[in-house]
């Protein structure tokens, strides 16, 4: 009997939850705010769905009822991607070690 591809995706999903579990426990508590902003940025990878949706039309009908939702989603996800990564970078740049010599 053949295995449904869904099962493979489900396996990836479950294993990723475990990876996430162990990786996130190793995040130092002082970086929990950057953790939130970076997870926020990467979850915007949902933009791939938005791109597929927005390119569903053709040259004659770029803006169909479904592609408009896609374009809107692209804007939202793009705000998140740029905003999320840049604000994380800005925060992380502030974490400095003690200067040895004063």
């Amino acid at each position: 009997m053949e295995i449904d591809p869904f099962i493979f995706r489900l396996s990836i999903f479950i294993l990723s939850i475990f990876i996430g579990y162990y990786v996130v426990w190793s995040v130092t508590p002082s970086l929990h705010t950057p953790l939130m902003s970076v997870t926020n940025a990467i979850s915007s990878v949902i933009i791939v769905g938005a791109i597929i949706a927005s390119l569903s039309g053709n040259d004659d009908a770029i803006f169909t009822s479904s592609s408009i939702y896609g374009f809107l989603a692209i804007i939202l996800a793009a705000v998140n991607i740029f905003g999320g990564f840049l604000v994380t970078q800005r925060m992380l740049a502030m974490y400095k070690k003690k200067k040895k010599d004063k």
Partner: peptide, 10 residues
């Protein structure tokens, strides 16, 4: 998306 969703979710 599946991997990221699981990571962010956990």
């Amino acid at each position: 998306l599946i991997i990221t969703g699981a990571l962010v979710g956990s």
